Amino acid sequence: MTDYVQEQEMEIEALKAILMDEFEEIHPSESGLNTSNRCFQIKISLQDDETEPNDTVQLGLVFSHTHKYPDEIPLLNLKSIKGISASDLTVLKEKLEQEASENLGMAMIYSLVTSSKEWVTERFAHDTGDYDILEETANKDEIIVPHGEPVTVETFLAWREKFEAELALERAKLLPESALVTTKEKKLTGKQWFESGRASKRAAPIIEGSNDEDEDIDFDDDDDNSEVDEEDMLDHYLAEKLDPSNQGR
C-alpha cells in the first residue's frame, strides 16, 4: 500500500532545498483553493538567462496535495504577482493540468514549475525586451543637455584674441633669454662700434690720406632716443672724409 503522506512530505522537503526563497507555505485562505490541507506557493519569474531572474513578470504557482497524490493531480491555482493578465493565467493553468494528468504516479510539482518558467519566458521575453528599450529611450529623453553661451562673431573674435595672446606667452616661455633681447638693445652706439675694432677697417684709408689727424667725432652716447641711426651718422662722416673736395679745409 502506497504511503501518500510520506511521499508528499519527501517532495515538499526536496522543493524547499531546490527552490529555497521561491518556495513558501501559505494559509489555505490565501491559496484560492477549496481545501483545508497544507498549501504552498512557488514564485516564478521571467528568466533572462539560466541564472538571473527578471522581476518585470512574476506569478505565484499555488498547489496543495490531495489525499492520494501523486496518483491524483494536485490542486492548482495561479496568481499574478506582476505583469500577467487573467487570460494568460487561464491558458497556463490548463497547460499545467494537462501535464499533471500525463505524469500521474510520480512526484510532479517540480516538473510543473519548470514548465511554468518556460512558458513565462516564451510568452513575455520579447515583450519585456521591447519594454526595456522603451524605458531606456524615455530615460535618455529626460536627460537635460546644458547649453553654454551662444557663439557670435564678436564672442569668437574675443576668444581668438585671448587664445592667441596666451599662445604667444607660452611660446615666449620656451625661448632662450637671448632671443628676447630687442633690436634696439642689440644695436651698438657709435662709441661702442669704434671700441669693438670694426671702425679700423673702414677708417684706415681715410686716416692715411687725411691731414686732419686730430679731427675727431663727438657722439652723444646718452641720446638713446635720437631718431637718427648712429651707423648712418658714421657712414655720412666717412663719406665726407673720402670726398677730395673736402680735404684741405
Results as ranks from 00 to 15, higher is better:
residue 166 E to I: 06
residue 10 M to T: 06
residue 97 E to G: 13
residue 4 Y to M: 08
residue 159 W to I: 10
residue 112 L to D: 01
residue 185 E to S: 11
residue 201 K to S: 15
residue 37 N to D: 14
residue 84 I to G: 01
residue 183 T to G: 11
residue 135 E to N: 01
residue 41 Q to V: 14
residue 71 D to R: 09
residue 190 G to P: 01
residue 65 H to T: 03
residue 158 A to N: 13
residue 198 R to C: 06
residue 43 K to S: 09
residue 240 E to A: 10
residue 243 D to S: 07
residue 24 E to H: 12
residue 11 E to L: 04
residue 145 V to R: 09
residue 155 T to A: 00
residue 21 D to L: 12
residue 233 M to N: 10
residue 143 I to S: 07
residue 105 G to D: 01
residue 144 I to Y: 13
residue 182 T to Y: 01
residue 74 P to A: 04
residue 189 T to Y: 02
residue 89 L to K: 04
residue 2 T to I: 14
residue 142 E to P: 02
residue 60 G to I: 03
residue 176 P to T: 04
residue 145 V to I: 14
residue 131 Y to M: 07
residue 120 V to N: 00
residue 76 L to C: 00
residue 60 G to F: 01
residue 51 T to L: 14
residue 133 I to S: 10
residue 85 S to D: 11
residue 216 D to T: 08
residue 72 E to Q: 08
residue 5 V to E: 13
residue 18 I to Q: 00
residue 42 I to T: 04
residue 239 A to C: 08
residue 61 L to Q: 04
residue 35 T to I: 00
residue 175 L to Y: 12
residue 217 I to M: 11
residue 95 K to G: 01
residue 140 K to D: 10
residue 98 Q to P: 05
residue 208 E to Y: 02
residue 44 I to E: 01
residue 96 L to N: 01
residue 245 S to E: 13
residue 72 E to H: 00
residue 9 E to R: 14
residue 116 S to N: 08
residue 40 F to A: 03
residue 22 E to V: 07
residue 197 G to N: 06
residue 95 K to R: 09
residue 84 I to Q: 05
residue 35 T to A: 02
residue 122 E to N: 13
residue 82 K to V: 09
residue 135 E to M: 07
residue 156 F to G: 02
residue 134 L to P: 00
residue 174 L to R: 15
residue 14 A to I: 09
residue 220 D to T: 06
residue 29 S to T: 08
residue 56 T to F: 06
residue 31 S to R: 03
residue 235 D to S: 03
residue 158 A to Y: 08
residue 154 E to V: 14
residue 86 A to K: 13
residue 141 D to H: 13
residue 163 F to H: 15
residue 204 A to T: 07
residue 231 E to P: 02
residue 176 P to V: 01
residue 12 I to Y: 04
residue 200 S to L: 14
residue 189 T to I: 04
residue 166 E to Y: 05
residue 236 H to I: 10
residue 242 L to V: 10
residue 212 D to P: 00
residue 120 V to Q: 00
residue 106 M to I: 10
residue 174 L to K: 15
residue 88 D to L: 00
residue 164 E to D: 10
residue 195 E to A: 11
residue 156 F to M: 11
residue 108 M to V: 07
residue 61 L to R: 03
residue 165 A to M: 09
residue 61 L to H: 03
residue 117 K to M: 02
residue 237 Y to I: 07
residue 248 G to I: 04
residue 67 H to E: 15
residue 141 D to P: 05
residue 21 D to H: 11
residue 47 Q to N: 15
residue 16 K to E: 03
residue 193 W to M: 07
residue 144 I to C: 12
residue 9 E to A: 15
residue 43 K to F: 07
residue 142 E to M: 11
residue 64 S to N: 03
residue 176 P to A: 02
residue 40 F to H: 06
residue 163 F to Q: 12
residue 59 L to G: 05
residue 212 D to N: 12
residue 83 G to D: 02
residue 65 H to K: 04
